[in-house]
Amino acid sequence: MKKNGVKMIKINSKNVDVFYGKKQALFNINLDIEENQVTALIGPSGCGKSTFLRCLNRMNDVIDICRVKGQIIINDFDINDKSCDVVRLREKIGMVFQKPNPFPKTIYENISYGPTIHGMAQSKNEMDEIVENSLKKAALWEEVKDRLHEPGTGLSGGQQQRLCIARAISVKPEVILMDEPCSALDPIATAQIEELIDELKKDHTIIIVTHSMAQAARVSQNTGFFHLGELIEHGSTDKIFKNPENKRTQDYITGRFG
């Protein structure tokens, strides 16, 4: 979002290197993410785009051999700093995964889990409200309002993914990370999610990793192209897709990769 004509930067990554054991997966990534915009990260498999995404909410901590260097600054705060609390960070930065992964619990419990562990609701009524709002924002309310206490795993793939999005937004995160959220969905469900992403960007900053360049082109305002662990090019989406500056970007998005 532009304020007084100046782009507001939400996330600012400086010289980020990531290592898996001895292998370096990301090289010196400097990428600024604009607030309340959708930023798409594209690139061939294994290029490091998912790795970068997972740096942003420190999901890489789960992997023992993974080391992250450099600074990732969100709200003037370096999340790689020792004083950063991962649990708090992940409350602020939600994530939606490639495969819909609702908890094998009821729809209601799926949504209420986050607010419960973060103590966001004082009463049953408040919780009901959070659940309803989250589902409404995820455009799922109408479809599930009569079966909130049925298992979330009984929904269709697209509904499950929207449930996961509702779960992610239930704790009101500032940033939502999406790791190929539509790769397991059919075109209709994909379109619904894309529409949803467009809506969500009003309140959240969204970063989406996708294999589908068409999807990146459709949903994002900014695009970053990763290749072999490097950020090759980063800029506005229409620039990248109409007239990229870098030859490798052009080769990738036109399908000329050898």
């Binding site: 068409a214 109409k242 007239n243 970007t249 998005i253 399908g255």
Partner: peptide, 9 residues
Amino acid sequence: RQPMAIDLR
């Protein structure tokens, strides 16, 4: 083919 970039142009 949904051409992109140079192909689109």
